[in-house]
Amino acid sequence: MKNHTNSTPLLTKSGMQAGDDNDVAAAITTFSKAANARIDTTDSKVKSLTELVSGVKAEVMELAQKAVRRPGGGNSSDDESTDSVSSIVLKSDGLDLIRADAVKNLRISVKGFGLGQKAAVTNTDTHARAERDTEIYGPLGRRTAVRDLLVTRPTTAPSIEYLLGTRTGSAAIQAAEGDQKAEMALAFELKQAPVRTIAVWIPASRQALDDEALLADYIDTELRDALQLTEDAQLLKGNGTGVNINGLWTQAVAYSRAVVGDSPSDTLRRAITQVQLARGVATGVVINPIGLELLELDKDNEGRYQLAYTVTDADGRTSVWRVPVVVTDALAANEFLVGDFSRAARLYDRQQATVEIATQHADFFTRNLVAILAEERLALAVNRPDMLVKGTFTTV
């Protein structure tokens, strides 16, 4: 017998098992991927739902706290309007829809909250802070002073002595050779101008000066201005008695050239002439602000201004009849003083205006206080009082 070999592979049990195993493995892999995808989707939904529920719980807690804080809130179980917010939310059917992922938001109407009855919040409630201006505003000082008209010299003496000379007689033509010529006599009077002290002080705490530099500068300025106001008053109207300065107005000669019907401008012009007749040259006019207004508003019968006054410098000083003006309320409203100030008087500074700070006053050291002192020492010598003319405007 001859053996025959078949080229077609035989189907065996072992062959069938191998093919089935491959199919099963592929099916398991596909199922596993699908399952994992489903699990991931489910986890994502669960996570979203958990976050949503957490948010709802937070809102519920916040509403519950607000309900407890409101007057009468959460204290009555008989009226729905007084139930706590948390109980109202838990009773709501909408919470089941949140759990079932059927809705994403939950809105519950809470009665009796009275939100519309609350007052609007304003700046008064919050006490908003205003912006602070760093500058300190106080009274303004004078832009010009009487001393601006005077020649000023330093001195180290306690007083100033000067001679006032007068003469009698005059020169004359000799009548004939050998005749007696004209004789003139000179007389002298010794005058004295004592140095006077003008001072002012103010107490302040050390902390106020340390913590606010602007305050220290403000106090310094105000003290110096106070000195100038008193200085003006003394230089003009000091009566020379006691410790007072013998002032310019006090020693000036009276205006003597009045003419009936003169206007204020006329009067002032005639006073300038009076200074010139005393062989002086008018270098200044001292006048009250109201008096200057009277001069500048002087009009004729047709309402036209009589004279235009010009401003001569950056300080705003006016020139009246070509003479510089110092405006001060140390003179009365209807008073004026005209003079050759450069030759009529001398001002001597024994100590120029200074500001000092010290703790040596009473118990200031233990109280942490300081005394701030402004002081000046000066003397006024009026050498030629006849070159100063004082007067009043009768129409003021």
Rank of each mutant, 00 (worst) to 15 (best):
L149N: 04
A308G: 09
L347P: 05
G141S: 14
D386L: 00
S205G: 14
T122F: 01
G169F: 03
V311R: 14
M61L: 15
D340L: 07
A145T: 09
V110D: 06
A120L: 14
Q207G: 09
L63W: 00
K237Q: 10
T395C: 03
L307V: 11
L277Q: 14
A374M: 01
V326Q: 02
S170D: 13
A26Q: 15
E189D: 13
V323C: 00
A18Y: 11
T155F: 03
E177W: 00
T318P: 00
V103E: 08
K237I: 05
E177S: 07
Q207S: 13
Q207D: 13
A187D: 15
R346Q: 08
L63K: 13
T156G: 11
V103T: 12
Q228G: 08
I290W: 00
T50P: 01
L369F: 11
R147K: 15
S342A: 13
D363S: 09
Q228T: 11
S76E: 12
D262W: 07
A332K: 08
Y305M: 05
V259F: 07
P9N: 09
L49Y: 02
R132L: 14
G240A: 00
D179V: 09
T241M: 05
G242F: 00
V146T: 02
E356D: 15
P158W: 08
L63V: 06
R143S: 15
P154I: 03
Q192I: 07
A185W: 07
E302Q: 09
Q276Y: 09
N6P: 03
D329W: 06
P324D: 07
T144C: 04
E356F: 05
D262A: 09
D313K: 02
V121D: 07
F336E: 00
G74E: 06
L10M: 15
T122E: 03
D23A: 09
S263K: 02
Q360F: 11
A374S: 06
N334S: 08
T50E: 12
V68C: 07
G242M: 04
G74H: 03
F341W: 05
V260G: 12
G15E: 14
S256Y: 06
V60A: 04
R343V: 03
V46F: 08
I88E: 01
P158K: 11
E51N: 13
E296V: 03
K181D: 09
Q17S: 14
D93K: 14
V260D: 15
L90C: 12
G391K: 09
R269N: 08
G242L: 05
D40E: 15
A64K: 04
T50S: 14
P289H: 03
R206S: 12
A374V: 05
I272Q: 01
G169V: 00
S7M: 11
N383Q: 15
K111V: 10
D349Y: 08
